Simulated scan of single mutants.
Amino acid sequence: MSEETKYFAPAVIYPPGEDLADKLEEMGIDANDLASRIGRSQKTINDILNGKCSITLDVAIDLECVTKIPAEYWMHRQYSYSNFIASKKREKGFGSILEWMKNFPLQEMLKRKWIDAVQAAADKVQPLFKFFAVCSPKAWENYYYKQQLKVAFRISLAESRDPYAMSVWLRRGEILADEIAMEKIPDKKVRSNVKNMLPEFIALAVKSPSVTAPEFSKTKKKLQALCAKANIKLLYVENFKTAPVHGASRWYKDVAVIQLHDGFETDGGFWYTFFHELGHIVLHGKKDMFLKNVEYRSRDLVKDAEADAFAQKQIAAVGDGGKKL
């Protein structure tokens, strides 16, 4: 089967009721007779014949008994027709969706292979929708821009310089976090783990090569392993020029997550940001989310200062160990 044949889509798909009407005519019975035979109202049958009512599985099974046409056929026809109608409905708002998509760093996302390339214009919206796990621009707006799901964030990305790129960065972290299996344990236990393991974090920072050295990749993996030991998911996600966020910390699906920019140019920038986000996990609540190097009105300056103090204390300990940051 050729690709053209495999993906052929007719310009128009008629409701399955038209097939049913043809079959009834062939059998020499009318809608009222069919309604009596399958125990449905005449209105329901007329609505099916006119495409105003969908054929359910129960109805399809009953139709098979009367018409001898398999229920699978009726369900397939109904699916094809419903999908056709839904596609037409989406096409009406296609122009505005394409305009909305222009706000996102799509070329960079393609380059990083965060979304898949598509050829057909009608399919271009699907990779972005799938990336965010939403079905419309409105759903994206409610979740990310207006932060209606406050369990996810305590900030509104509408307050950031580029909320679109910021949402991409955060969502990429969610995708990576979902790929890591980790037990959910009480937040008090996580904080206790971190406090007990601080010497290990500091020792790793002392021994760490420069962030610009090829060997630093091994340090990043070791740091991820240490965080996992403390029951924290540590993620590295490259940011965007319009959203130069350095780090974020939050509890995602009841597991502590630290997300760092994957491309620090200085040792101090990397380790300070890591310890800053670690400080938020240790010191602050599960419903809070914090972004570093991003200005937003709802930013909690007190908690940010506490995380700074925590980071400074750990950096000082790194310095005492002979490592200058």
Rank of each mutant, 00 (worst) to 15 (best):
K150Y: 08
Q312K: 14
Y7I: 13
P10E: 06
Q147S: 14
G285Y: 13
A230V: 07
F274L: 13
V237S: 03
G17T: 03
P16L: 04
A177W: 07
V255R: 14
K313F: 13
K6D: 04
V237G: 00
S192G: 14
A35I: 14
G285N: 12
K184S: 09
K89M: 08
N103Q: 15
E179Q: 05
H261W: 04
Q126C: 04
D288G: 15
L301R: 15
S87N: 10
G268E: 09
Y272L: 08
I281W: 06
K222Q: 09
N293H: 14
F216L: 05
N293C: 10
A158R: 13
I69D: 03
D267E: 13
A120F: 05
V59D: 01
I180L: 05
W140E: 02
A133W: 09
Y236C: 01
I258P: 04
E179F: 00
R90T: 10
I38H: 03
D187W: 15
Y145M: 09
A35R: 10
R161Y: 11
K68A: 13
K233Y: 03
D123I: 06
A133E: 02
M75C: 11
H261F: 03
G173A: 03
Y81L: 14
L57Y: 03
P70M: 05
M1W: 10
D30V: 10
E141W: 11
A152I: 09
V211H: 15
R154H: 10
A21T: 09
Y252Q: 02
A60K: 02
K68C: 08
Q148P: 08
I61Q: 06
Q78P: 01
L204V: 11
K188D: 11
I69S: 07
R172K: 07
L291T: 08
W100F: 15
K195M: 08
A117V: 09
A228H: 14
